[in-house]
Structure formats: structure tokens, C-alpha cells
Computed example of a mutant assay.
Amino acid sequence: MTRYSATELRHLDALGEFQSTRQDALTVECPRCEAPVDQLCVNTITGELLRAPAHPERIARFERKDVQA
């Protein structure tokens, strides 16, 4: 049986939340970088993939869509 430290457990929990948020956000287009559904957000200056789950505007758009459904 594996024992995790409190720090490791917090990291695993945060990673799960990160992945869940990213998957939810991928169901809508991003109004900031114009990433289509199923494509990750990119940094609008460098063009590199965003290190966050998605732009805040995209996450908010998903949350509004989820409430309306």
C-alpha cells in the first residue's frame, strides 16, 4: 500500500481539478484566443499552449452554458 504525504495528496487533488477544469472548458470555444472546441488554449502573445487549464473567459463560458442547460 502506498502512503502519500499531505503535500502529495494536495498536489494530486489539484492535478485532478486542473484536468477536470480543462476537460470541461474544451467543450466550448475560447473567446480570448479563439481556440475551437476540443483544442487547447494558447498564449495570445507567444502562440504557445497555455499552462493554465484554459483562459478564464472560456471557463466562465462553460459555466454559463452548464447553468443554462
Rank of each mutant, 00 (worst) to 15 (best):
E48V: 09
E29N: 10
H11D: 13
G16A: 14
T7K: 13
L9K: 05
I45E: 08
A69R: 15
C41N: 02
H11C: 08
M1Y: 08
R3Y: 07
I59S: 00
G47L: 03
A6G: 03
L50I: 04
P36V: 01
E29C: 12
E29M: 09
R32N: 03
H55L: 01
T46G: 05
F18N: 03
E8K: 14
A25D: 00
K65L: 10
R10K: 15
L49G: 10
A35M: 00
A6V: 12
D13F: 08
L26S: 05
R64P: 06
I59E: 01
R22Q: 11
R10P: 09
R61K: 13
P53Q: 01
I45K: 15
Q19V: 05
A25G: 03
L40H: 09
A69Y: 13
L9W: 11
T46W: 03
Y4T: 08
F18I: 09
E8Y: 13
G16L: 07
L26K: 06
Q68P: 08
V37N: 00
L12A: 10
R64S: 09
R32L: 09
M1F: 03
P56V: 10
A6D: 14
P31M: 10
R58Y: 03
G47E: 05
Q19R: 14
A25M: 02
V67L: 15
V67W: 11
P56G: 02
Q19L: 13
T21G: 04
V42M: 02
N43I: 04
R3P: 12
E63R: 15
T44D: 06
V67S: 15
M1W: 03
V28F: 02
Q68M: 13
R10L: 12
E48C: 06
E17P: 03
G47S: 05
E29G: 11
A69V: 10
P31A: 11
R22I: 00
P56L: 12
Q39S: 04
F18C: 04
S20E: 14
Q23C: 13
F18E: 00
P31H: 10
A54D: 01
P53C: 04
R10M: 12
P56M: 07
E63M: 11
L49S: 06
R32Q: 10
R58T: 01
H55V: 01
D66C: 13
D13P: 00
A52G: 01
A6W: 06
Q68A: 15
L12H: 05
N43L: 08
A54R: 00
V42C: 04
F62K: 13
M1R: 15
R64Q: 12
L50C: 11
P36E: 10
E17G: 06
Q23H: 14
C41Y: 00
D66H: 14
S20I: 05
V28D: 02
A60D: 08
C30M: 04
A6L: 14
D38K: 14
K65R: 14
L9D: 06
T2A: 08
P36M: 00
L9R: 13
R32H: 12
T21I: 12
E8P: 07
L40E: 08
E29A: 11
R32S: 03
V37Q: 02
E17S: 09
L15Y: 04
